[in-house]
Write a protein that binds this DNA or RNA. Structure first.
Lengths: 294, 294
DNA sequence: AAGCTGCATAAACCACCTTTATGCCATACA
DNA sequence: TGTATGGCATAAAGGTGGTTTATGCAGCTT
């Protein structure tokens, strides 16, 4: 047995205010409208809910049975509605990250997050210098374990391998060995000294080949640009696997050397402060994206 | 922040059924009406509550916040509504009593009970022979403590006194003493031998006067009739105080002898079986009526 | 490609909910 | 006693919002 839902609010207002007139004022209605609604509800249920007197209304025993459940239930609903509205007024979810990650990983995938969560407004702030996230913000930055707060988690471990464009390989000849690679033109990602990622120097050291940077070789300070240059056949780059995976898949780039991995460095997610549903949704989605990429 | 109450039902139905179309069928509406209501609610709140897909809807995180409170709250309301309806369908409150009590005490007061409890339908069954109440019934009958169930309670202890009409006294002369009363014409309430109330025999025995019934004196088997006869000046009656109080107040009858009381006999209320709000309301009202009569 | 199902949107319409007006009743006060 | 005030009920009028019908788009399955 259900009751016209509007009537529930009227019943509650009458109980709360004690007269039909005052209930109407609270609901933005006139007394006859309240009288009509209350009457309809009582007729529908087949029982009087309030006794009317010149001094106002008081509930009948049947009315009290209903009000005992109705008042707390409506209060609960109102609390939840306030919570929903407060959520909708949350500031946008701000993601801090570097240009490379933003351009090569996040932006191509963001449409998927937005279609799953259209209610979450997302702001992406890309920068050269990654600062730590403030409470409420989400930072996705390249770092090593120990550099971050304990609650940060590793999204993408570091995996690199030398890559070149097919046209460059055709002109250059085979680059089958680290020694052959040492003779090729290398593209460098210029970064501050405290940068934690693999560089060519580090790569050759791992393969016991001495190779220093030649003058005239291209150096770029944004990984996005490094990828553009290698695609254009300007040399061999150290490919950051999760970021260049689409180019490998399409054949625009081919591996020209073995892969190197590190488990304690990579892109980490830190998200200080309270975790709103938006924060949780983003974390969940990020994990899904990595998992589905295999 | 409140929401159109009709929308709450729509939101709940969409969550329960998983598609707008099926929710509409359950609510007796079409899909576009559901779509419109849901849209209005979402616009009002400023946040999407459901994600729509070809396969149906699933709640957003904000939707889940609301549903966590809404589903149990609406369930509580529905339970209370069902309870109210069940109450309204209770059989009438059946009161069993004798003709004297019904006619002289209960009926004159019943309007007051009905105005306080218009939702309670009352049935009065008066009879010469009072049977015990069945579960759900309420019996108000003359009895002595020990004859009834332990839950029965004494409504009106027995208080009697000789009364006559002023016209009878004017014709007869003063009846100041039990001996003078013995010479008067007495009106008798004829009852079965197991009757427990005061009779004239008992009254005279208490006053050490031998008085037996004279032939030709009027005997009546209903107390209502006894009261009519004494009002008509046909003799002196043993007045049952609670029942004749209005006549004493009005002067239609005057006392012509001392009052006798007994505390273990009188009108008792027995009400076996579950005590519905109706039963409780009646008991409460009965106590109030006795208390306000002093 | 065809068929089915789900949701969104626009236009039309009508039922019902609200307002205005009025009357009755009870209470308080001068 | 008469007047004023406040509360509820009822009737009539009207207008608007909620519903239906029609249509189109998208996704999925066979």
């Amino acid at each position: 047995m259900q009751l016209d839902p509007a009537a529930l609010r009227v019943i509650e207002a009458v109980a709360r205010h004690g007269t039909l007139t005052r209930a109407g004022a609270a609901l933005g209605m006139t007394q006859p409208a309240v009288s009509y609604q209350l009457r309809r509800a009582e007729d529908h249920l087949g029982v009087a809910l309030f006794l009317r007197s010149q001094a106002g209304c008081r509930p009948t025993p049947a009315g009290e049975v209903l009000l005992r459940a109705l008042l707390p239930a409506l209060a609960q609903i109102d609390v939840a509605l306030a919570e929903v509205v407060a959520l909708s007024r949350q500031p946008a979810l701000r993601i801090l990250t570097d240009f490379g990650f933003a351009g090569l990983w996040l932006m191509p995938r963001l449409a998927r997050f937005r279609s799953q969560h259209p209610e979450i407004e997302v702001q992406i702030t890309a920068a050269q210098e990654n600062r730590a996230a403030r409470p409420g913000e989400v930072a996705i930055r390249f770092a090593r374990a120990g550099d971050l707060d304990a609650s940060a988690w590793l999204l993408l471990p570091e995996r690199v391998l030398p890559v070149a464009a097919p046209a460059y390989l055709a002109a250059q000849g085979p680059l089958d060995t680290p020694a052959a690679l040492a003779s090729a033109t290398l593209l460098h990602l210029d970064a501050p000294p405290e940068a934690r990622w693999f560089t060519w120097t580090g790569w050759f050291a791992e393969h016991a080949v001495a190779r220093s940077r030649r003058s005239g070789e291209l150096g770029l300070n944004t990984y996005d640009f490094v990828v553009q240059a290698v695609l254009a056949g300007q040399g061999v780059a150290l490919g950051w696997l999760p970021l260049i995976a689409p180019h490998l898949d399409s054949g625009a780039l081919v591996p020209v050397g073995p892969e190197l991995r590190r488990q304690d460095t990579g892109y980490w997610v830190e998200s200080p402060g309270p975790q709103t549903p938006g924060h949780k949704a983003l974390a969940h989605w990020l994990r899904d994206e990595v998992a589905s990429a295999g």
